[in-house]
Design a protein around this nucleic acid. Structure first.
Lengths: 110, 110
DNA sequence: TTGGCAGCTGACATCGGCGTCAGGTTTTAG
DNA sequence: CTAAAACCTGACGCCGATGTCAGCTGCCAA
């Protein structure tokens, strides 16, 4: 994690941060898991707006039905993405296998 | 597919395109699969540089050992990404389930 | 007290994968 | 043959998550 990213999350109201009297940040220890979650959601490609809306709900445990639908839609997209990635992985696997094993005279550079 | 994207791929030398005497593009029919492949690789999050280097190798069937290592590394990253996405999907699933059904025990799967 | 590291703020820079607009050329319909 | 339609090139715009730089300020050690 970069400091910049933490500041950014805070700025986006994704992460709550305490300050001491001098204005310096003090991260509650829950922040670690929180940041991990944020990164996961970003990595999953959820629109940042959805992330912004979803996180407070994760906190409060209350989800509006509208958001619920959006989350469901996101889940479907994530599923699709997973299967796409599986395809790509297999493809990479094939390319690598063929390249590794082009027959007898393979000069192993490593 | 947008026209712009095709032009972009061509510009990046990912896609080979013929021209007629007047300079207008003429796509060989292999272009369809090609474009699909490109999009898959992009979607998989491979660095565009790697995509640029990998595609000619897919054509020629020849892969330098160096690139091979990079591909292998990418495959690992894709795998990692898949497991991350699975985690997120489960998480979404839980949130949705709980929101739908706030009665029984909350299966807080981390 | 003071030096200096560390943290803060704000703003501008970057990068990738396109969208989009402008201004010119080729193709095509009538 | 001509006008419209379709294509071409080049360039600038955009968005999101950070990097980065500058100019202050707070905090701790000596």
């Amino acid at each position: 994690m970069s400091v910049r990213a933490l500041r950014y999350y805070e700025e986006q109201v994704l992460l709550q941060v305490d300050r001491n009297s001098g204005g310096q940040r003090h991260y509650p220890d829950t922040a670690v898991g929180r940041v991990r979650l944020i990164q996961q959601l970003y990595a999953a490609g959820l629109p940042s707006r959805t992330v912004r809306e979803a996180l407070p709900c994760v906190d409060s445990g209350h989800v509006s039905p509208e958001l619920l639908d959006r989350l469901e839609a996101e889940r479907v997209r994530v599923d699709q993405r997973i299967t796409d990635l599986l395809t790509v992985r297999d493809r990479l696997h094939d390319v690598i296998a063929v390249a590794r094993n082009p027959g007898p005279g393979c000069t192993h550079a490593r």
